[in-house]
């Protein structure tokens, strides 16, 4: 009986022992090795390129069980930067990001898959302009390991796209935003 209880206990703890390898990471924003960049078509000719200068986020990741990974990112929308003072002011206004009302955009992951080829899919709830919708990000894991300064790092690249009108931003009609995400996580000590 004692053996049975012991093995039952072991069985229940077993799934968690795998998590011992899971680690928590913080997005490297201080060293600016993480970037959130966007591009929107300009009249069908070129693109408006920009990024958000201030955001923070963290994720947990276990290479052995990538599906248990979670990621949370909070973006300060007032820091939208398209390298153009007057356009940035317009982007902060009611026509676009409405930053007075919605100072933050957030992404909270709901699922993650990573294949053998280190390519995967991250799905999460993306909140922008007060609207929350699921967003799928194609992910490519680059590398993981020790950095030269005694820490551990891991890198990903992601890209996603969504229609502005889905987030109640209707000034540009059907325009799509292409997101380019450059992620470097530093393992929490």
């Amino acid at each position: 009986m004692k053996k049975l209880i012991a093995s039952a206990l072991l069985a229940t703890t077993l799934p968690f022992t795998g998590n011992a390898l899971a680690a928590d990471y913080t997005l490297d924003t201080k060293g600016a090795h993480t970037a959130i960049e966007f591009a929107v078509s300009h009249l069908g000719f070129g693109w408006v390129n920009g990024r958000f200068n201030e955001f923070e986020g963290s994720f947990s990741f276990d290479e052995a069980k990538p599906e248990d990974s979670t990621l949370n990112v909070t973006i300060k929308t007032t820091t939208v930067d398209s390298n153009h003072a007057e356009r940035d002011k317009h982007l902060r206004g009611a026509d676009y990001l409405n930053t007075d009302k919605f100072g933050e955009a957030t992404f909270k992951s709901t699922s993650f898959k990573l294949g053998e080829d280190k390519k995967g899919t991250l799905v999460g709830d993306f909140t922008l302009n007060g609207v929350t919708k699921p967003l799928t990000i194609d992910v490519k894991m680059t590398n993981a390991g020790k950095d030269p300064w005694g820490g551990e790092r891991i890198g990903f690249k992601g890209d996603a796209s969504f229609a502005l009108k889905d987030y109640n931003i209707t000034k540009l009609g059907d325009a799509e935003v292409e997101l380019d995400l450059f992620v470097e996580g530093i393992k929490n000590k």
Binding site: N83, H84, A85, E86, D88, K89
Partner: peptide, 8 residues
């Protein structure tokens, strides 16, 4: 100040 806020 609006137009020159980013240094242009």
């Amino acid at each position: 100040l609006i137009s020159t806020s980013k240094g242009d």
